[in-house]
Computed example of a mutant assay.
Amino acid sequence: MEGRGTRQRRSPVLNRPNAAKRHLQQQQQQQEADFHDKKVIASTYFSIEAFLVLACLAVSLLILPLVLPPLPPPPSLLLWLPVYSLDECLWLGESTIIESMRQFVRAVVEVFGDEYPRAPNEEDTAHLFDMNQRRGFLGMLGSIDCMHWRWKKCPTAWSGSFTSHVNAPTIILEAVASQDLWIWHAFFGIPGSLNNINVLHRSHLLDNLAASEAPKVQYSINGHHYTMGYYLADGIYPKWATFVKPIQSPIGRKWQHFVVQQAVARKDVKRVFGVLQARFPIVRGAARFWDQETRNDIMTACIVMHNMIIEDERPEGEVKHVYEGAGKLESQT
């Protein structure tokens, strides 16, 4: 037992005011050092993540072509491989791969979105007229149609407005394509329960024509003079001068031949949808993202890379046009 005269000893640091201040400063410096170490670790982690993503692309370029059949273009690797397939070989978690994919498609949209896809200017219109004149459709700008992309993560409250004829929630992509499979117009984000006419009324396909800002064209067919191009469409589209639809009951060989040729040329946009889904299975499968921005970025990135592939695969003698006044993929807001 301690005696009555025994005093409780205090910490020597607390006995002196200056020592207490130094002790607090040391604690603050230690906290700042720990915070700095965490920042260094975080930056190192993201650097490693970027390195692994680049390593995936390098593997697709150098190694995989030697042991596997031809793969899609390297930029589409993150869209081509399933999420779980990179877990074991590269030690990347599912969330890391998904976030890397989001950053990848966002970068593609920000860097190349102003160039691909783009609305045709006067030089493009002349090129399209020359291409389609050889097919017997002078004045044709392309074929128009819609594609449904299934939305797996559609909220239950929205499933009614997004459910289409396939009995599942879908999102509509409206596109205009030419014979070389180039996508000139894309409008994405409309609920799947709407038809092609509703999508057309919401898209901006004919805004330039309505505002008298479309490229000036002049051509004559059967003695009639025209000053605007047209698109090949199916029977659901309205009877406008900008749409050439099939004849329901053709009489005579002349009209029957026209119906056959119109159906053949109108399949260009169908071919584009098939090639787009074949190159990017993420578009062929169901959409698994909740937010609209990510879905729009994925679709835009796939269309951009599709047009880049079409441009790269053109014959060497063919002129590669430079386009100005381009616009990004239009989406429903």
Rank of each mutant, 00 (worst) to 15 (best):
I190N: 05
I190S: 04
A210H: 12
F188S: 02
I183T: 02
Q179C: 11
L206C: 02
H204D: 11
T156P: 05
W158V: 03
R202M: 05
S159G: 03
R150D: 10
S164T: 06
S164N: 15
D207M: 05
L181K: 03
N208A: 03
F187A: 02
V166H: 14
K153R: 13
N196E: 15
L173D: 08
S203F: 09
I172P: 01
A177Q: 05
A177M: 05
S178Y: 11
A210F: 08
I171K: 03
C154N: 13
W182F: 14
G192Q: 06
V176A: 05
L205A: 07
T170W: 08
L206I: 02
A168P: 02
P155L: 12
I172E: 06
N198T: 07
A157C: 11
V166T: 12
W182G: 00
L206Y: 07
A211F: 11
S159T: 13
W149R: 04
D207R: 09
A211S: 15
N208R: 15
T163D: 07
T156V: 14
P169I: 05
G160M: 10
H201I: 00
P169M: 10
I183H: 05
F188Q: 00
D207E: 15
I197P: 00
W151K: 04
F188Y: 15
F188E: 00
G160S: 14
S193E: 07
A175Q: 10
I197G: 02
T163E: 08
L194R: 06
R150V: 12
N167M: 08
R150I: 10
S178A: 14
S161Q: 15
G192L: 01
A177N: 07
E174C: 01
H204N: 11
S193F: 07
C154W: 12
S159P: 01
A175E: 07
L181F: 10
D180P: 01
G192V: 01
A210V: 00
I172A: 02
W151Y: 10
P169C: 09
A177D: 07
N167A: 10
H201D: 10
N196V: 07
L194H: 11
G160R: 13
L194P: 00
G192I: 01
W151D: 04
F188K: 02
I171T: 04
Q179H: 13
Q179P: 00
H148Y: 12
L205V: 05
H148T: 09
K153G: 04
K153H: 12
W149N: 00
V199M: 09
S178K: 06
A157H: 11
L181D: 10
V166D: 11
W151H: 08
V176L: 09
D207V: 05
T156G: 05
L200S: 06
F188M: 00
L173P: 03
L200Q: 04
D180T: 06
L206D: 08
N198R: 13
